[in-house]
Design a protein around this nucleic acid. Structure first.
Length: 794
DNA sequence: TTGTCGCGGGG
DNA sequence: GTGTACGCGACAA
């Protein structure tokens, strides 16, 4: 692993204290920090209790004038209340510290109360322009230069997974009947309530807490741990009036911390106040946070639920047991073994998922002065970069700028050009890797108020770290712990690097935001996009669409892939050093419909539809199917084939050969019968009219129904069984005329850009009137329309 | 048809 | 002591 270097900038990235093996940190208002470290190799855990001086950063010393001689200059070993002034022109420039947080707070507030009309309960009630107050453990980490996990690998952590099985989702009504635990050694243990009584559940809670204490993990993990298991446990313990805690500090209990993605604890002035639970000494990690981050980068997950993610990532064990959520308790009563298998598989999948995706937060916790559990759910800009910058400034002895709401300058966006519509063949996609971070580094675009230059220095370091980690990861044996660590490091760096641009633009949220710098980045980005479009244009290709950092273009006949790659490399050579244009893919054909709406046909025959025009779940299945088949024919240049698909579909509709199911809309009910009755007069809605028409006056919100238009024009319900069974009970009484109008007006219209107007008329002429042009269609080619060719100079 | 608001999960 | 984005569905205008 990377040791902290000796340089100033190394300290900005890694901290500077070499203490190895820290797995958790807690600090209290008495000025005590509890530091849990793995020792004796990694076999044991030790808790050091160390003194630290709570501190606050102030814009003015006026509030402390009342201290008189009790206020002393900061010096090593100083006792009592001390202060020092930082360099530079930042507004937050006085570091005031004390032996304990209460003394510090009382001293500052005594002065501040004289100036403020409102009540001040604590330092956090001061304006952000007057004071910067970090959580206590972050005060400790920033001041000490310590970070988590130095010299530890992810697999050195003691990680325990737990998963509740309950009779329902409401902790005020439902109860816990089983807890599956996976111990740090990988063994699964089931704790079960002996019956449905409150005493049995109390006993279960006590055994769970005992078990965790005995196994003594550093980390507790589950999927939706913070959204379900922890709040449920705490609520049950409250209702059953039994103590419950998961931490390592005796008597600390389950504490709360503010968290954006927490559960609602109270209603505040600016919306609900949300909290997450925390337990001193152990890190409470929710794998759903890691899943969200992962999907944010890859956007390939089918959903964020445990089962779907585990299946998708190949983590589901052989013979995985599945039980629908609402049946878990009922199944347990008649077949407890099945639920035991199910719950065991849950914790095993969570362990795999946490290891696969949790390494990124682990890597960040070795750098940023925050608890591992906070880095796991933090946004990368405010959650990772900001704390690192605060630490860098204090380390350098430089004052921090006060929060700033910007000067009202609006944020300008990326460029989007549509050069052509219709069908193009031999299409190439090229894009610039990490365009915005590359521009920031190339042109040294950083926040204007960052006089220290720490922002760009940190981004530079992270890019280097990422490249090194990628190289080392490739060199390491597949599936090895070493490879896992490098891949996690690379993922963590990617996350932060890609958020650096967002950091600049986050006016009012990040400490050093700078909308002018962000606009300079997008301006340079538009410039690069224009430059590469012009360069491609000059080389005889047909530009199709360019968006932000990528471009689609069509190459002349005779180009093979090698020639395409040479062309991309040629244009790449014209770009600034750090801005690299890469070959991203090649396609047999593209139907360009509107900006960000297109269809691609791969050389392997795969059809990709992008944009709302081509994929809407509101579309009736028959229309979607028609569009896919017809678009594919069009992309192959087979206009007569498009006609054939249309004729076939239209005739099938007219003959009612298509199942009613394929003409339905799937609608989720959102109004109760009473609510709909109230609005029915103003506006009639198909789904509810269908329900009423079927004589149904009772339904529940959330129910999904299939609705279609009956030949009479009235809304009708279709009973759709779970599995498709071509039904004897399929009524086939849909409104054919309406469906035909939809086919032509809604679906065929998506292909209009690829056909000349007269060809469109011929292709989609009424099928029972054989077209005069039927023969001519065999020689009709799809159309490509070149739009205005001006490539705007930025 | 076209903007905005809110969600994504857990039993 | 808190702030992602993206794509989609629901709802209102």
């Amino acid at each position: 692993m990377t040791p902290p270097g000796a340089g100033v900038e190394d300290a900005w990235v890694w901290g500077w204290d070499p203490t190895p093996g820290i797995v958790s940190v807690w600090a209290d208002a008495d000025g005590r920090a509890f530091v849990w470290r793995r020792t004796n190799g990694i076999a044991a855990v030790a808790c050091d209790e160390v003194r630290f001086r709570p501190w606050v950063l102030l814009a003015s010393m006026a509030d402390l004038a009342h201290l008189g001689a009790r206020l002393q200059p900061d010096a090593p070993g100083v006792r009592g209340i001390a202060w020092r002034e930082l360099d530079g022109d930042g507004a937050l420039r006085f570091v005031v510290s004390a032996d304990d947080a209460r003394t510090l707070s009382a001293a500052v507030l005594q002065g501040a109360r004289g100036r403020h009309a409102r009540r001040l309960a604590g330092l956090r009630d001061l304006d952000a322009s007057e004071a910067l107050v970090l959580p206590l453990e972050e005060q400790y980490l920033v001041a000490s230069g310590r970070t988590h996990f130095r010299d530890l690998a992810f697999d050195d952590l003691r990680r325990l997974q737990l998963d509740l099985e309950t009779t329902g989702l409401d902790a005020d009504r439902d109860r816990i009947f089983l807890v599956a635990v996976r111990n740090p050694d990988g063994r699964a243990v089931l704790l079960e309530a002996r019956d449905g009584s409150p005493d049995a559940e109390r006993d279960l809670l006590r055994r769970l807490a005992d078990h965790v204490r005995a196994e003594d993990p550093d980390v507790i993990e589950n999927h939706n741990l913070h959204g379900f298991d922890l709040p449920f446990l705490v609520r049950r313990a409250e209702r059953l009036r039994v103590p419950f805690a998961l931490g390592r500090l005796p008597g600390a209990g389950m504490l709360r911390r503010a968290a954006r993605r927490g559960i609602v604890a109270a209603e505040g002035a600016d919306g609900p106040l949300r909290v997450r639970f925390t337990a001193p000494g152990r890190e409470l990690i929710d794998t759903m946070d890691a899943v969200r981050r992962h999907d944010f980068a890859t956007r390939e997950l089918p959903g964020h639920g445990l089962k779907a993610v585990a299946r998708h990532l190949g983590l589901a064990p052989e013979g995985r047991e599945y039980v629908p959520g609402h049946e878990v308790h009922a199944v347990y009563l008649r077949d407890p073994e099945r639920v035991r298998r199910y719950a065991t598989h849950d914790v095993e999948e969570v362990a795999g998922l946490a290891r696969l995706l949790g390494g990124a937060a682990f890597a960040l916790a070795r750098m940023a002065p925050r608890r591992y559990e906070r880095l796991a759910d933090a946004g990368p800009a405010t959650g990772v970069i900001d704390p690192m910058l605060v630490r860098a400034y204090l380390r350098a002895g430089r004052a921090l700028p006060a929060p700033y709401d910007g000067d009202g300058t609006v944020h300008t966006g990326a460029a989007l050009h549509l050069f052509a519509t219709g069908v193009a063949r031999r299409v190439v996609k090229a894009d610039v890797a990490s365009l915005y971070p590359s521009l920031m580094r190339q042109y040294r675009i950083g926040p204007v108020r960052d006089g220290l230059g720490a922002f760009l220095a940190i981004v530079d370091r992270m890019v280097d770290l990422r490249l090194a980690a990628k190289a080392r990861g490739r060199a390491a044996p597949p599936a090895s712990a070493e490879r896992h660590e490098h891949e996690a490091m690379s993922a963590a760096m990617k996350l932060v690097i890609n958020s650096a641009y967002g950091y600049l633009g986050a006016v009012g949220l990040t400490r050093f935001h700078d909308v002018h710098a962000a606009n300079e980045v997008t301006r340079r980005g538009r410039e690069v996009l224009s430059l590469l479009c012009r360069a491609l244009d000059q080389r005889g290709v047909t530009l199709l669409e360019a968006d932000t950092d990528g471009v689609y273009f069509a190459v002349p006949e005779g180009f093979d892939e090698a020639a395409e790659r040479r062309l991309v490399a040629e244009v790449d050579a014209l770009l600034p050093e750090r801005v690299r244009l890469e070959f991203d893919g090649r396609y047999a054909a593209m139907l360009s419909h509107e900006p960000k709406n297109y269809a691609l046909l791969g050389y392997d025959g795969r059809l990709v539809l992008r944009g709302v025009a081509f994929r809407s779940s509101r579309s009736e299945p028959f229309g979607e199917a028609f569009l896919r088949r017809a678009a594919e024919r069009l992309l192959r240049g087979d206009v007569a084939g498009v006609r054939a698909v249309y004729v076939e579909t239209a005739l099938a509709l007219r003959a009612r050969e298509l199942p009613t199911r394929s003409l339905t809309n799937r609608v989720r009910l959102t109004k109760t019968p009473e609510q709909y009755a109230a609005t029915r007069g103003a506006r009639r809605e198909l789904a509810y009219e269908a329900l009423l028409g079927a004589g149904r006056t009772v339904w529940s919100v959330g129910e999904r129904v299939h609705v279609y238009r009956h030949r009479t024009g009235a809304a009708r319900l279709l009973a759709v069984p779970d599995v498709d069974e071509p039904g004897a009970d399929d009524p086939r009484d849909y409104d054919v005329g309406y469906a035909l109008r939809q086919l032509r007006g809604t679906f065929a219209a998506r292909l209009a850009r690829g056909l000349a107007p007269d060809a469109f008329v011929a292709v989609f002429a009424e099928p029972w009137q054989p077209s005069l042009f039927e023969l001519a269609l065999r020689t009709t080619a799809p159309l490509l329309t070149i739009l205005g060719r001006s490539i705007a100079e930025p």
